[in-house]
């Protein structure tokens, strides 16, 4: 989770990702941000997030993103 929060604050400094919800709906994370996020997460966690996984539900909070990461780590 720590690593994730670091990545998030690198992309969007100034946002407290432990608290904020509805990141996609409130346009805190734009599609461009999500691309960067996915690229860094894929590198950092050695998983493969595909467009299939890019749903608002999965990216609306740091917790849900982390849950996705864990799910993909378990898959292989």
């Amino acid at each position: 989770m720590e690593r994730l929060l670091k990545i998030l604050s690198n992309i969007k400094p100034g946002i407290d990702f432990t608290k904020e919800k509805d990141l996609v709906e409130r346009r805190i994370l734009t599609s461009f941000d999500i691309l960067r996020l996915v690229s860094e997460i894929n590198n950092e966690f050695d998983i493969e997030i595909t467009p299939l996984h890019i749903l608002p539900e999965n990216f609306n909070s740091a917790e849900s993103i982390y849950a996705l990461i864990q799910k993909l780590e378990d898959e292989d």
């Binding site: 691309l35 960067r36 996915v38």
Partner: peptide, 27 residues
């Protein structure tokens, strides 16, 4: 369109090439 194209295999290869620079330019 956007996510499939930008995250496609071809794009991922370009990504790896630019991996040295910061993630902004990478994507």
């Amino acid at each position: 369109i956007f996510y499939p194209v930008s995250m496609s295999q071809g794009m991922m290869k370009i990504n790896k090439k630019l991996a040295k620079k910061n993630s902004f330019w990478q994507v």
